[in-house]
Design a protein around this nucleic acid. Structure first.
Lengths: 192, 192, 192, 192
DNA sequence: TATGAATGAGTCTTCATTCAT
DNA sequence: CATGAATGAAGACTCATTCAT
């Protein structure tokens, strides 16, 4: 049971807990509302159906991730330093929320609501793109980079590796090595 | 309806067709068998349950992809040339089978059968890793690369971008630019 | 939205509107209160449950119908003249309130509250019966008629035909012909 | 439990039994399938939803009623004799199936599928109309009657009275008197 | 009186799976 | 091997009703 406050948030957090435990298919609305400590019908006061849950969670997650990034990353430091921090934060958050994040990352296959996912990712894409543009202006990195495309590529890559590490090879993998290789790879890719 | 031959293959192909159209949740066994032109019960003669379908499809797909790679890529050409070809082939195959591939790439979240996916990808990983190792021995690329890890990173990245291009931004995206940026990015990353 | 005044009446009128539109099964309390412009809970201040709605509406309707009859029918005119007027008024009222009336006429089957409907119709039956008795005393019609039974028969018949005309064959029927045949039929039936 | 045979028929008969007992609103699919001795899902093999039950039953009933009429009524006897028989059969059948018939007669209010009901009644209307036309040709009854309209009127009237007798005033009514008055009424109405 | 958020029992419907033929 | 009618467990969703404010 999760503490009172805003009912929608309450249900959302409960959904994250239950989905992490059971996965998408095995999660029943009844599990979620039990965890949230509300009635079955209350769920439908805030979410029109089971299918809108995943996008809602993804949005929630991504907003949190972006908030942590913005708070922690020193925009005055070098791009490569920022890059390391972005990777570290993504790895940490992925480690913490691995199960739900996997659901989010790949939720598209189930819901087929591609457009929506783009919408959700947009602020994150923009923020990363801005970092690249700034770095280009500072002449820290290659100038012949399409910042828009590479922002997506970068996010795709970092999230993908974090998934690899924490989801596919649960623990029995040398995380620091993966981290190091990833940083090295993208560093070389960006370098002049 | 798909032509007779081997019943298992017949059902598998029908499953790909239906899954592409309807997505995972909305695909029923009854749809698949109708498309395959066989009886409901026949499905269970070849597949123990609905859940083994996705891995079976993924295996099928990945084997095809790898076969195309092996057949088309000139192992004597430079690593960077091979890289371009790998990217092109992945883009082409993704374009053709985009919907099912998305299902495969991200099906893990739903089925939670991670280990199995690793198993399926293993030969592909190995083959890519071998390309990297060969290139390192030929001193075409950086030597300080963990070929095992970077093989995964590379596949993850290429498939991720192909998905981006063909799934998220259905057509209304400048594919050649994405391709060019991707090639440029990985080329720089590998370069000495 | 219906104008303020007496809340009970307000809700009743809203119920008629919504029931006409949606039919019994699809009408929810939430629809009615929205139409009435009151809160969900307010409904239960005036009606103990959803099931008391239909009888309440029927009573309302029948009182109106009877009031119109009493006001418009010239008791001094001949029975056959009165009969025509009764038929005309029933047709007019049915035309106006066709959907709710159908609900009322046949609502019994759903609620199974037969007795209640008898109660509601009683004043109407009595008034018609009185017309028949008066006509018999005036020797305008056959004397060998059981006024009590024939009153019911007459109401049943007129309402039934009005329903036929306005409900089943929405407009694409020759109303004057139906009216003429009905008048002719009952006239012959009553004639000495 | 009802004996095997044709599953659809089995379910239909069970539905009639249960609906008679419980009425429309309180009848659950689970009750019907239990009575029919089949599985829940089997219902949906033969009926697309709960809502198609009533029309299906009505059709079944009306076909039976018409079959009985055709079998029992002596077409060579006088029209007035036939009329009596029609009334008697309608009363008998109504007495036997009163609850379901009420559901059928008034099912329109719930389902709002008027057209369908017209379709179902069509053969019955036609058959009655034919009786009227034949009688007119034989010059047994008034010639100035619109057989098409009066057929509907007659059915409406007879069924309405049967309903009155067996549904509204369950038993505590003098059936023979009602029958006698009805016959007398229609006889006078048809007489030259 | 009036409100409307919250409730939760109730039921329809779906669909993977089985099995007698 | 193949069939497809039958199964029945499972769960999403609805909506009349309540009650704290």
């Amino acid at each position: 049971m999760i503490k009172e406050k805003n009912k929608r948030e309450q249900i959302l957090q409960a959904a994250i807990v239950v989905l992490s435990e059971k996965g998408l298919e095995k999660t029943k609305i009844s599990d979620i509302v039990k965890e949230a400590g509300v009635a079955q019908g209350t769920f439908y006061l805030y979410f029109s159906s089971k299918n809108v849950l995943l996008p809602a969670i993804a949005e929630d997650m991504l907003q949190k991730l972006l908030a942590i990034m913005i708070e922690n990353i020193d925009l005055k430091s070098s791009f490569f330093n920022q890059l390391q921090q972005i990777i570290d934060i993504t790895f940490q958050v992925t480690a913490e929320y691995k199960d739900v994040l996997a659901l989010c990352y790949s939720g598209l296959a189930v819901t087929k609501a591609l457009q929506q996912w783009e919408e959700i990712y947009k602020p994150y894409y923009s923020w990363i793109e801005e970092r690249i543009v700034v770095a280009q202006n500072r002449e820290e990195i290659r100038g012949d980079i399409n910042s828009h495309i590479i922002a997506k590529l970068l996010i795709e890559l970092i999230e993908g590796m974090a998934e690899q590490v924490y989801l596919f090879e649960k623990g029995n993998v040398d995380v620091p090595s993966y981290r190091k290789e990833l940083i090295s790879f993208v560093t070389h890719a960006f370098e002049k």
